[in-house]
Computed example of a mutant assay.
Amino acid sequence: MSHSTKNLNDLSHAIKKWGLELGFNQVGITDTNLQTAEQEHQAWIEKGFHGDMDYMAKHGVKRTRPAELVPNTQRIISARLDYLPPEAENSTSILQDSHKAFISRYALGRDYHKVMRNKLQKLCEKIQSELQSFQIDQFEYRAFTDSAPVLEVALAEKAGLGWRGKHTLLIDKNNGSWFFIGEIYTNLPLPIDEPASNHCGSCSKCIEVCPTQAITAPYEVDARRCISYLTIELKTSIPEEYRPLIGNRVYGCDDCQLYCPWNKFAEITQEPDFSVKHGLADVNLIDCFNWSEDEFKSKMAGSAIYRIGYLQWLRNIAVGLGNSETTPEIIDTLKQHLHHENEMVQEHVRWALDRHLA
Rank of each mutant, 00 (worst) to 15 (best):
A154P: 10
I238N: 04
V221A: 03
N72V: 08
L234F: 00
L155W: 06
C256D: 03
V349Y: 02
R110M: 05
L170S: 01
N72C: 03
S2N: 13
Y55R: 10
L334W: 12
E87S: 14
V150A: 14
S129Q: 12
R355A: 11
E271Y: 04
A14E: 13
S98D: 08
L357T: 08
T236E: 09
T92E: 09
M1D: 06
E38L: 13
P211S: 06
M116E: 14
V70H: 06
I127V: 12
A223M: 06
E347I: 12
L230H: 01
E241R: 15
R315V: 14
N187D: 14
V250S: 01
T92Y: 03
T333C: 13
H339R: 12
L81Q: 05
E241M: 09
I94Y: 02
A79C: 15
L95W: 05
W44R: 02
D255E: 15
K16A: 12
G279Q: 10
A217V: 09
L108N: 04
L8A: 05
P239F: 04
M1H: 11
P195V: 15
I286S: 03
K6H: 08
D282N: 15
Y83H: 11
E194A: 10
A43Y: 02
Q135G: 02
L8M: 06
K122L: 08
Y55Q: 15
Y229K: 05
K335V: 02
V115I: 14
D137V: 07
S12H: 04
A67F: 12
Y106P: 07
A159H: 06
I181V: 15
L155T: 04
K205H: 03
F296A: 08
T64N: 07
T5G: 00
Y259T: 15
S147W: 13
N198Y: 07
A318E: 00
I238R: 05
H41A: 09
N174Q: 13
K299V: 09
P328H: 14
H278W: 07
N284A: 04
A159S: 07
G23T: 05
E271W: 08
K17P: 00
H339L: 14
T5K: 05
D332N: 12
D146Y: 10
K335D: 03
S4N: 04
A43S: 08
C288V: 02
K264M: 06
E152S: 09
P71H: 13
I268F: 14
R307V: 09
R142L: 05
N248R: 15
Y185W: 02
A43D: 11
R243Y: 00
K119Q: 07
